[in-house]
Design a protein around this nucleic acid. Structure first.
Lengths: 145, 145
DNA sequence: CCATTTAGTTATCAAATGATAATTAATGAG
DNA sequence: CTCATTAATTATCATTTGATAACTAAATGG
């Protein structure tokens, strides 16, 4: 197989990943937060504590807009800001208890859908899947830097 | 490895796929079309000819909004509508010559970035990658229906 | 035929997102 | 100490996107 064909295969694959992600996460987000706000909460949940700049960089949202959305999330009591002693310009952000509970429940439901998706796989297949994920992550879908 | 850990691994993996997709495609879209319009054009490019309903279903955009965006794309001469003889309610949509040229160039640039990303992989590694893609697509990231 | 469903359109409105400029405050480098 | 840089905020505006209702026309199914 040549590299052109592999590119095509990766395009199809990425499309499938996006679609499955959509299926697993649809109707999960509570109605009172926007899609962008939910994606910020997901990021905080996985990476907390994080600074505003990190959120801005990783989610590709400008600082002013990140600040605005974070303010709304804080007002909704879904996350909290903490000062950093070493650098008083910075702020660390964590989920609040309410926010953590909300995201725990969301991940719980997504995980349930995921388990259903792989329910027919044998133990050996699960091993194979794991190796395939590691391989692709290191050889194709790696981060720069 | 248990299923919970595999779920975590898949979450991380999906995040990487999204991020790499972002890196490969950023700054590709021409300035005079919106992100949603570009994503519609990508879909048409890969699946043409398509109906409005197919675009609506696959891209998760309501029919009225799909109709609106498609009208704008048609006015920009990026795609064309054709009547279907068998069912005169339906319309098939294809890229125009200009639209096709635009998307060819876009895919060309994305492909170049992709090749750069896998440039260090040996022939055996490329084979491994291919098998891993096939495996994950059939066992995890498959479509329903 | 008539009623229902399907495919698509148009108009309109509200909300979410993106972009920019101007500002404050703290840090860091000569 | 001063200047440049970094982190974050506030305000404002334009654009994009999403949602809904009301509509036409064609097909489909008794």
């Amino acid at each position: 197989m040549n590299k052109e064909a592999l590119f095509q295969k990766c395009v199809t694959f990425a499309t499938s990943v996006h679609e499955v992600t959509y299926e697993l996460t649809k109707d999960i987000k509570p109605d009172d937060i926007t899609p962008v706000q939910y994606s910020i909460l997901e990021y905080i949940a996985v990476s907390q504590p994080v600074t505003l700049s990190q959120i801005s960089d990783c989610k590709h949202i400008s600082m002013p807009n990140t600040s605005r959305e974070l303010k709304k999330l804080t007002e909704k009591n879904l996350c909290e800001k903490f000062d950093v002693a070493e650098d008083r310009r910075k702020q660390l952000i964590r989920l609040s208890e309410v926010g953590q509970a909300m995201m725990n429940e969301a991940f719980q439901r997504i995980g349930g859908r995921f388990l259903d998706r792989i329910k027919d796989a044998s133990a050996e297949e699960l091993e194979e899947i794991q190796r395939a994920l590691d391989l692709l992550q290191s050889k194709v879908f790696y981060g720069d830097k």
